[in-house]
C-alpha cells in the first residue's frame, strides 16, 4: 500500500512535457521523503480520525480531553512555556552581553562554540549530568548542605520534577537562543544608537523605541522555536524521571512500547495533537523570522 501511495504522490509532479527528464534527478529524494517522513506521519493523522474498524470518527479527538491525557498536555505545555521563556530571556541577555556589552573579544567565539556544543548536548547524558548536580547526592546539593547549611530537598525541590526538568531543559534552550539571536543583535546598526543618542535619547528610550521593536519578531519567533524544541523532547525527560512524570512525549513513548491507552487510534490522536502544537509554533516562528529579517538586510 505504501508503494502505491508513493507512485500516486510522485506522479502529479512529473509532468514530462515541461520538465522533460530533469525531474528524474530528484525522484530519490521525494521517494525517501514520502516513505520515511510524510507517509508515516500521514498514517498517524488519518488513523486519529478512524475507529478500530477504519470508519471515520471524531471519538479519538474528543477522548483527548480525558483527564490523564489533558493533564499530560497541560504539564508538557507548562514545562515547554517555562523553559522557552526563561531560556529566551536569559539567552537574550547572554547574547546581548557578548555582542553589545563591550566584553573582551575572545569571549564571543568561546561562547558561540560552547553554545554549539551545549545545544546538541541533550538527551540522556544531560539528564545524568543534572542528576549528578542536583540529585540527592549531587555535588551542588551536598555543597549547599555542608557549607551553607541549606537542605535543598527539605524545600520540596526534586530534580525529578517540573522545576528540575525546566532547569535541565534550559541547558540546551539558552544556547539555542544565543545561537539564533546573535545574528539579529549584530543587525542592530551602530548608526541607530548614535542617531538616538544625538537626538538626546536615554539608553532606556533607545531600547524601548528602537532596539526592542526591531528585535521583537526574532525574539518571539525563537521563543516559539524553543517551545517546540522542548515540547518534543523525550530522552532528557525519560532519563531524568523515567516514566514517573506524565508529559505527552513520555506518554506517547509508553504508548509506542505497549498500547498503554488500550486504543491504538487514541495513540494516533495523541501524536496528532503533538504535531498540531509543534506545527503551529514552528509556523509562527517561520512567519516571525521573515518579519524579523526585514531589518537585518
Amino acid at each position: 500500500m505504501a508503494q502505491m501511495q508513493l507512485d500516486a504522490a510522485a506522479l502529479p509532479l512529473a509532468q514530462p512535457r515541461r520538465m522533460s527528464f530533469a525531474f528524474l534527478g530528484v525522484v530519490p529524494f521525494f521517494v525517501f521523503a514520502v516513505m520515511f517522513l510524510l507517509w508515516p506521519t500521514a498514517f498517524l493523522m488519518v488513523g486519529s480520525f478512524q475507529d478500530a474498524d477504519g470508519h471515520f470518527t471524531l471519538e479519538n479527538i474528543y477522548r483527548l480531553s480525558e483527564p490523564t491525557i489533558l493533564n499530560a498536555y497541560k504539564i508538557s505545555i507548562e514545562i515547554s512555556v517555562a523553559s522557552a521563556l526563561l531560556g529566551a530571556i536569559f539567552g537574550f541577555f547572554l547574547a546581548a552581553a557578548v555582542v553589545l556589552g563591550g566584553l573582551p573579544r575572545w569571549l564571543r567565539p568561546t561562547l558561540m562554540t560552547f553554545c554549539g556544543v551545549a545545544s546538541n548536548f541533550a538527551g540522556l547524558p544531560l539528564a545524568f549530568a543534572f542528576l549528578a548536580t542536583l540529585g540527592r547526592t549531587g555535588l551542588v546539593t551536598l555543597l549547599l548542605r555542608d557549607f551553607v547549611g541549606f537542605d535543598l530537598y527539605a524545600t520540596g525541590f526534586n530534580v525529578l520534577s517540573f522545576t528540575g526538568l525546566t532547569l535541565t531543559y534550559l541547558y540546551f534552550q539558552i544556547p539555542l537562543m544565543v545561537l539564533i539571536l546573535t545574528p539579529a543583535l549584530d543587525g542592530l546598526k551602530r548608526e541607530w544608537r548614535e542617531a538616538a543618542e544625538v537626538l538626546g535619547a536615554t539608553s532606556w528610550q533607545y531600547w524601548r523605541h528602537v532596539a526592542i521593536p526591531v528585535l521583537w519578531p526574532s525574539f518571539l519567533g525563537t521563543t516559539l522555536l524553543l517551545f517546540a524544541n522542548s515540547f518534543g523532547a523525550v530522552a532528557t525527560a525519560y532519563g531524568l524521571t523515567g516514566s514517573s512524570l506524565n508529559i505527552v512525549p513520555i506518554l506517547l513513548y509508553a504508548q509506542s512500547r505497549g498500547d498503554v491507552l488500550h486504543n491504538p487510534n487514541l495513540g494516533y490522536a495523541l501524536a496528532l495533537g503533538m504535531i498540531v502544537i509543534t506545527g503551529l509554533s514552528n509556523g509562527a516562528y517561520i512567519w516571525l523570522r521573515a518579519r524579523g529579517e526585514r531589518w537585518l538586510k
Binding site: M1, A2, Q3, V26, F29, A33, F36, L37, L38, W39, P40, T41, F43, L44, G47, A228, F231, G232, A233, V234, P249, L252, Y253, Q255, S256, P264, G267, A271, M274, I275, T278, G279, N282, I286
Partner: peptide, 29 residues
C-alpha cells in the same frame, strides 16, 4: 524541498518513529 527538509524539526522524532512502528511492522507491505 526546503519545506520538506524543515519538517523533521516540526514533527517530533517520537511521532516519526511511532509512525514507523505502524507502517513498517511485520504485517505491513
Amino acid at each position: 524541498v526546503e519545506f520538506i527538509t524543515l519538517l523533521p524539526l516540526v514533527i517530533p522524532a517520537i511521532v516519526i518513529v511511532f509512525g514507523y512502528l505502524h507502517t513498517y511492522n511485520s504485517s505491513s507491505w
